[in-house]
Design a binder for these strands. Structure first.
Lengths: 218, 218, 218, 218
DNA sequence: TATGAATGAGACTTCATTCAT
DNA sequence: GATGAATGAAGTCTCATTCAT
């Protein structure tokens, strides 16, 4: 399963809704502004100016400012969770492609890092605003609980049975795996984005760390 | 070195500046509102109402809304970083109290978790707003770079020499240690705060994970 | 050279900037209010009410209250100084139309008095506020120094050479001529505006006074 | 009649009202602020700070901000008009000291110029605010009409009878005399206060001008 | 469909004034 | 008498949203 396949899936999800050129400009301007100043501190008039459209045009496409936020965040988050929805996802993990948890972890890390690189602005908006809008929190909490967590859990149990990974509750394992990746993404993109980063090497460190820990004992 | 000692230090830092009762009400109301709605989406009139004071009273104490934000966030963050400034901090790690990195890690984890429990609202505000206000980001970036990172590095090198921990760049070790802790705090307080959490047990998992990794090979 | 010509010049200067009906109402209401209460004591809410528009409408057209002040005062003052900028101004004085300083003075007096009658409110605002706003003072000081004073000086020297007027420094002559006119305008429009005034007769007195003084000896 | 006598008169007018040191500081600070920013744009809190007193202290001495304005302006204006109230004023003009209108004019000019120099700030405040406060305009209009104008008129008629000055209505003569002096004061103190001014020479010019006009023919 | 002028509610902030200490 | 914290009305200005064109 390659990047390409996912992306196709994702694009198909939203491509049926045709988006006019003006709408695209509005979305781009809104992403820019929201991610720079935050949703509440961004004004629709500034977005309109940046998009090169009239103030009223925004409201022709999106009834309210919040609807504009959702229009930005929703499809991107759907894409973010998309891999876990692919029918073949778990099967492939079990059967062939990812013989070890390590491989699986490496794949997820690389893959989602790539995604973050591409969609960083929108993710930033999402993370900022999820705290304040139930419309954002609820569907993604549900989505995570019902789909992502479920599949993940199966995969982890699979590798636990194989004796590859320790016997902790799956949510703990998920948390530790995920937080190690996120713990790289945060400084990488937010705290010190201007520093030079060798992503491949760092991912190896992360995988190594997660798998073998900090213990000097190998 | 115990909690008590730190707390004393912290309190002394700010207790000389006497705070009137109304001021305290304003601060409490502001923390409440900011952490619930975010800084930009909170109105001073709402804060005033919640604090039971006239709106003008807020501005007698804090020239601007942003100054109110800083008045909330700055001392709390100073307290958060405070342990790392205590003169005895590194010495105690090296000499006696924390013979192993594990002990040190456990202490930090417990200790800062305690702090987060107590000051969660303010920390949430800080995390939310640091992305948008240079006045917040810069001093803490500097503080971290100049003080926290330096001491941490020495400690890590110390345990690396002892062969207790792996030979990765210190910032990578820090990142992994910290993100494992943060990776617990985030779901613990933000995503699923209503769930039951056995903090002591979870910290043991974290420490174990960080020290020995997920690898089944012990 | 007649009033008509000047006025055309002036109107052309600003007529290309089209002003909407609401804008005109706002300007009229602002002139009214500023001249009655002074700039600082006038509130935008009162102006809005008087203009019959929403308060926000004022700020759509003029970013700040001060910009509204400048929008009122600047073009009027430009018009006030306009006669001195007409290409033919000095030539006509020298060559034919105003053979004597007296004629020139009478023309200026009548002409500018007419202007004051028409634009008294705005001039009052200007005079009141010039003391407090550098943005007002500086351009007009410069304008006066560079253009009005220069032309005036040449004209005065011309009549001094002809032996028509006394040999004092041109700025003194200007001051005395001007203050005699202003010394009429002030009581005429500010101190006792309700009294009956025979402008033509008074201007004759002024001209006579400026030329021959109060001495009974002719 | 000398300066000294007038000044004594004036001082006696107000010296019975004892003024505390704090009050003096308040008055000085208020004069400073009002004359720099205008009455409406000055805040009592700024005045209090400049005076080194608490905000409330101002209101202990002056019930309202406007009362503070009046406390500043009223005695100064009384002093300004004072010469005209001295019992001997007109008599001395008629009988001996000022044999010619010219002498009288010179004396007034010098004398009031001196006064303006000393009390410029307050006069500026007065001139600015008289347009907006009936409490200021009315008493001084009355005072001028009843006392100053009356005496002035007598003096002028006296010199008209002697054939020293032209036969224009007294108010016209007053206006022309006064405006010639004011026409010096304005640029002297407001427009170009930083320039070098030879007051004595300029006053001679003014007197000469008022008496003999600008005509070169003597 | 797009525009942008207009709106009015509400934002932050200032200020003259009061009053308990 | 002096203070300065507190007030709340009012000030300037912003903003999401509407609607006639």
């Amino acid at each position: 399963m390659s990047d390409q396949e996912w992306i196709k899936e994702l694009i198909n999800d939203t491509e049926d809704t045709v988006i006019s050129e003006k709408q695209q400009k509005i979305l781009a301007a809104a992403i820019d502004t929201f991610s720079e100043k935050g949703f509440a501190a961004s004004s629709t008039s500034e977005i309109a100016k940046k998009a090169g459209v009239a103030e009223g045009t925004i409201f022709r496409h999106y009834k309210t400012k919040k609807e504009l936020l959702l229009a930005i965040v929703t499809p991107t988050m759907a894409k973010f969770a998309a891999p876990f929805f692919i029918k073949t996802f778990a099967k492939e993990v079990f059967e062939k492609e990812y013989e070890h948890y390590e491989d699986f972890l490496r794949m997820i890390a690389k893959n989602r890092l790539e995604f973050v690189k591409k969609h960083f602005s929108v993710l930033k908006i999402f993370i900022q605003e999820i705290a304040f809008h139930d419309e954002l929190r609820e569907p993604y909490q549900k989505l995570f609980n019902e789909h992502v967590y479920g599949k993940f859990k199966k995969i982890i149990e699979h590798f636990q049975e194989k004796g590859e990974i320790i016997d902790l509750p799956p949510e703990t394992i998920i948390r530790m795996s995920a937080s190690s990746i996120i713990g790289y993404i945060l400084p990488r993109f937010i705290l010190f984005p201007n520093q030079e980063w060798d992503d491949d090497k760092e991912i190896e460190h992360i995988v190594e760390f997660v798998m073998y820990g900090l213990s000097g004992k190998r």
